[in-house]
Design a protein around this nucleic acid. Structure first.
Lengths: 135, 135
DNA sequence: CAGTATCCGATTAGATACTG
DNA sequence: CAGTATCTAATCGGATACTG
């Protein structure tokens, strides 16, 4: 059994779209921020406390990108202590099930992923394609 | 109606796990590569043709990372023209539904995402928090 | 409070050439 | 065929200081 190539040999669905989807939520903090916006509009200051480990600069960066991508909305209120609220758009909200599925997946495979973390921190060292003694 | 904060005010599910899940499939090409492995084992040379736009170096890099993360497996066959096959592990396969969901999402929102692409290519220019004339 | 400007280190990816 | 080694450009994220 040298070629157990099962399933379809060529294509099924175009993967390319998913690539773009990934780009939209890729970024160190985007998923987390968006997640907090699922719960309703949030002011910048609140987001800062909700995601304490992020720099303000990066927070705003990620917000901007998600805004450009149509995932979130930014609303300015003409009040004296200036107020700005970020909220998820319909498009952003439509990602909720997928993000939750991702959560569920990650939790379900927590063990394997822990294992992974351990590895990720190491340098991925080179390796030989050294066959186990040619037959 | 200044605070239409609906839904839960605090937490629901920990988002942190999803972050790690995202890390695992984030990377310019990982999703695409993994996707091709869903169809069965693939040799490196085949992957190169399946994902023609990727550099060989980067292809191997991404394969290595996914291997370290337990998503894929690498098997060496002791043959004379050396042969190496990559295939998805159980863990990798378990990502299939989510990746497909991501595909579906991206296709369903193709229009908005096209719009996005247009924007993504531009420089995200600075912007003022300029309120529309204070009341 | 919300946001900008700058500088810098780390990570990422691409190009190219070479090896068993 | 499968893979490594360099070198480089681009992107990303973090720290810090400053503004209306």
């Amino acid at each position: 059994m040298a070629k157990p190539t099962k399933r379809l040999p060529t294509k099924r669905l175009p993967m390319l779209p998913a690539e773009r989807a990934l780009k939209v939520i890729s970024g160190r903090w985007k998923a987390v921020i968006l997640y907090h916006l699922f719960d309703g509009p949030r002011r910048l200051s609140v987001l800062k406390t909700l995601v304490p480990d992020i720099t303000q600069k990066v927070l705003i960066q990620q917000l901007r990108e998600m805004e450009e991508h149509g995932l979130i909305r930014r609303e300015i209120f003409a009040e004296i202590p200036s107020r700005v609220e970020y909220s998820a758009t319909r498009l952003g909200l439509s990602l909720e099930p997928i993000l939750l599925a991702l959560c569920a997946w990650a939790q379900h495979h927590a063990d394997e992923l822990n294992e992974m973390d351990r590895v990720t921190d190491c340098i991925i060292r080179p390796r030989q394609a050294r066959p186990p003694a040619i037959a």
